[in-house]
Amino acid sequence: MTNVRAAIIPVTPFQQNCTLLWCEKTKKAAVIDPGGDLERIRDAIAQSGVTVEKILLTHGHIDHAAGAAELRDELGVTIEGPHEADDFLLQRLPEQGQAYGIPARAVTPDRWLQEGDTVSIGELTLDVLHCPGHSPGSVVMVSKSERFALVGDVLFQGSVGRVDLPGGDGKALIKSIKDKLLPLGDDIAFICGHGPMSTIGQERQSNPFLQGDGLI
């Protein structure tokens, strides 16, 4: 990864990996999944010396999207993603927030993302994959040139996303991973929504949810 840099900012009681991702050449950045604790996110932006040009959402759960509306207003940027199938989650953010004690506003992205779309950050281009299962509208963003991906809560080191939340579907999740993520190549490194980074190859070999029929 020569032209992409990332700072991971754990936010909310769920320790969600909010990610500040930027193009090293242009210092243009995106904030991915600002779930809360906006002061931490502001500090990371200041320390990195980058210019945020957009907010990206991988899906609509509270720990990923609760701070998106407020941060959009503060920074004067647009929100891109997730897929429109998660609109019902984004509109329910205030009630989700009350349940978990996380301040949240409902949010409608400026641009919904679909399979085959691309997202730009400076000179970086990320390809969009629609990967339902954890939520109906989950998306994964991949830089094929930099061999890097943002996978949200679709795939983790040694695990996969929960499927017991509204709209979750275990069979759809495994199909998304096997049909769309594994073919990307074993050398693809990824940042997930919680926990440490990993690679597609490591998960192909050792993730217990991806062995055999991969039924969960």
Rank of each mutant, 00 (worst) to 15 (best):
A65I: 11
I102H: 09
L124I: 15
P132M: 11
K28E: 15
V119W: 11
R147L: 04
I102F: 04
E74V: 12
I41Y: 03
W22C: 03
E146P: 13
D127A: 15
D117H: 09
A68I: 08
S138K: 01
S138F: 00
A99I: 00
R40H: 09
G122C: 02
W22V: 13
I102K: 02
F148H: 03
L71T: 12
K54Y: 10
D117T: 05
L20F: 08
D33L: 02
T19C: 14
L21H: 09
V154A: 15
S145K: 15
M141C: 10
G116H: 02
T51E: 14
A65D: 08
L21W: 01
D37Y: 07
A44S: 13
G137H: 03
K27G: 00
E53Y: 06
Q91Y: 02
I121D: 05
H64G: 15
A85V: 00
H59P: 04
A30D: 07
L129T: 03
M141E: 10
W112Y: 13
I55L: 12
E53C: 02
D153N: 12
H134G: 08
M141T: 12
K144I: 09
I102S: 06
H59E: 15
H59Q: 03
I32Y: 01
L21Q: 04
V140H: 10
G101A: 09
T125L: 02
V52R: 07
K28D: 11
V151S: 09
T125N: 04
I32C: 08
V128F: 13
L20I: 13
G101R: 12
R42W: 12
D33R: 00
G133D: 05
G152P: 09
G97I: 12
V142A: 05
L57Y: 02
Y100R: 13
L89N: 13
L150F: 13
A149D: 10
L38I: 11
R42A: 07
H83K: 02
K27H: 12
D73K: 15
W112Q: 01
H83Y: 14
G101M: 07
T78D: 14
G36V: 14
D73C: 03
L124V: 10
D86P: 11
K25L: 11
Y100G: 06
A30M: 03
V139R: 07
V151A: 00
D33T: 11
